[in-house]
């Protein structure tokens, strides 16, 4: 059978399962690279601001707090063994490999994932999605794809920013509370992690972004019933996103640090 974008873009007809949603997103993105006007930069930029940039203050505050917590918690135990000098190693490794990607993703689920599910759900209830279809505008291209691309760009950026801010939190505890020289903290926290630690965190973030936005959009587009349905979809989007993000994290950690 000859491949055509139309087959991919309309996979499943009027049905919309989670798998079909993923196929159609992929189809529209590939189609967008071959035909101008499909992917509209202004729409993607608007979503980058709405679901990414506006979540930065909250993600930054959480990352800073995690940096504080990691440094303080480790100082009590490592201090007993006279291993204070390993605190920067622990803070930077934990943030790059694990806590940076995971916590930023969870914050974005709570703030932006729920907002996307509620917005699309309300649009479905108000017949706005139906109106798009009747105007011959595919809701997945017009509503889902810009959000998908925006989050795939923004979540890794926010994670790198969050990791840096978390490192600042650790630095504050180590220098102010433990009297560690700034230069020592910076050198240790930069020397110990390898490039792969950073890359593994970014790969995880890309997977988390995919899980987060596809679940939020899927739940939003499948809302049935009125306000109650929107509420249910929003809750499901948050619960399932966090659940699958943590499961994916466990699998990826196993792959990156045990299997490979």
């Amino acid at each position: 059978m000859k491949f055509s974008f139309e087959t991919l873009l309309n996979a499943g007809g009027s049905r919309l399962t989670y798998g079909l949603l993923n196929l159609r997103i992929l189809g529209w993105i590939l189609y967008g690279f071959t035909k101008p006007g499909i992917l509209v930069p202004s729409q993607i930029l608007a979503q980058i601001i709405r679901i990414g940039v506006q979540a930065i203050p909250m993600a930054s505050l959480v990352s800073l707090s995690v940096g504080f917590i990691l440094a303080m918690q480790s100082s009590t135990e490592l201090g007993k063994m006279g291993a204070d000098s390993f605190i920067p190693d622990l803070v930077s490794l934990s943030l790059m490999r694990e806590l940076g990607p995971l916590l930023v993703a969870i914050i974005v689920v709570g703030r932006s994932g729920s907002a996307v599910a509620a917005e699309l759900g309300t649009m479905k209830v108000n017949e706005e999605i139906e109106a798009l279809r009747v105007m011959a505008i595919d809701p997945i291209r017009y509503l889902v794809v810009p959000r998908f691309i925006a989050l795939m760009i923004m979540l890794p950026c926010m994670t790198i920013l969050g990791t840096c801010i978390g490192l600042v939190g650790g630095w504050a505890v180590c220098t102010i509370e433990l009297g560690m020289p700034s230069s020592f903290y910076i050198i240790r926290s930069m020397q110990r992690p390898e490039l792969w630690d950073l890359y593994s965190g970014i790969i995880k973030t890309a997977v988390f972004a995919h899980i987060l936005i596809t679940i939020a959009c899927y739940q939003g587009l499948n809302v049935e019933g009125g306000a109650e349905g929107v509420g249910r979809a929003t809750t499901s989007a948050v619960v399932y996103s966090i659940l699958w993000i943590i499961i994916a994290d466990a699998i990826l950690t196993g792959l990156f640090f045990f299997a490979l």
């Binding site: 309300t122 649009m123 706005e128 139906e130 109106a131």
Partner: peptide, 9 residues
Amino acid sequence: FQFGALFQS
């Protein structure tokens, strides 16, 4: 549409 179905955003 009956209730307009206008895009609220």
